[in-house]
Design a protein around this nucleic acid. Sequence first.
DNA 1: CAACCGTGGAA
DNA 2: TTTCCAAGGTT
Length: 374
Amino acid sequence: MASAFADTLRRRILEFYDARARDLPWRREADPYRVWVSEMMLQQTRVEAVIPYYERWMRRFPTLDDLADADVDDVLREWQGLGYYARARNLHRAARLVRERHDGRIPADPETLRQLPGIGDYTAGAIASIAYGVPTPAIDGNVRRVFSRLLDDPDPAPAELRRTVAALVPEDRPGDFNQALMEFGATVCTPRSPACDRCPVQTLCRAYANGTVAERPRPKPKKALPEDDVATAVLVAPSGRFLLTRRPEAGLLGGMWEFPGTTVRPGERIADAARRAAIEALGDTTGTHAAVAAVAPVPLGAVVHTFSHRRTTYHAFRLELDNEPANHDAAASSAGRAWVAPGDITGYALPAAQLRILAMAREDGGSGRYDTGA
DNA sequence: CAACCGTGGAA
DNA sequence: TTTCCAAGGTT
């Protein structure tokens, strides 16, 4: 139906965008690489949180070649604090794939984009429409919410929603239209307390007419967060270096560095678990097991951290070795283990909770202080 | 398809 | 303090 509804919606949403669009760093030029990076960072992440990361990223990796040439550890270091670290790993891997399979040119076709790691339906549509002017929809949480209200549908079916939006995307300004819908959802048709009194499409909104705006879309039932306890060992050498280990690529915080830690077993004393974490992290090749076993773990305190799907309490302990361990080389970091001098810590990508543990370790200052923490 | 995957700001 | 949840993707 090439209806009055469609025409009015297109016109008013684009008028809104022309008048109210925020001046965001990635909107200054439609370079495909810049659009791609911004869309990856914006996945499940607020605009305000992304801006400083985007600016820094573009100074560090100005082009796709700069990114493809970089080590994954440098990429993760740049992503540190932004969360969902698989995004950074996927972006890095995809950059190399683009160079190998697409002659270094980011594809314009949504289906081709969709094949790259980290790019799903939304991101493929966003890159194609914004960077290349391809008339294809880009349906994110904002767009879903906007149409849930416009149609007064508590739970729009993805396939039908896609058809609906696709029929509305204008041939001349597809990227602006997609961004306009998102901008509208983010600044006017917000999840809580939407600004219906200054809504440019209020007269088109069935939920507004029915008084159901606050109930659209229907929220998903929330699940309780599992909790666990992790004993963390801040293992310090006489030189002041401390041990970091790299997490496996798959799973939580994949590829990030951390102080050695282990989940506390039922009935196990937390200090014993911390010592066990240190011993397991040192591996079989070192002769320091006995030394670790003889050291008394000094409690530094606890850090409670809420992830997307679980709450973890890190119980941190300082363990000071009497003798300097052998392998100090940075080359050892390839083995996923590194003795790091305090001044070199900025070279390692650490998750938020680990940075808090590091701060506690520095406050404690070392030998002789016995802060039992919380 | 449901679970997994971070972080921090707002209410 | 707790709850919500944000320009989603992968398995």
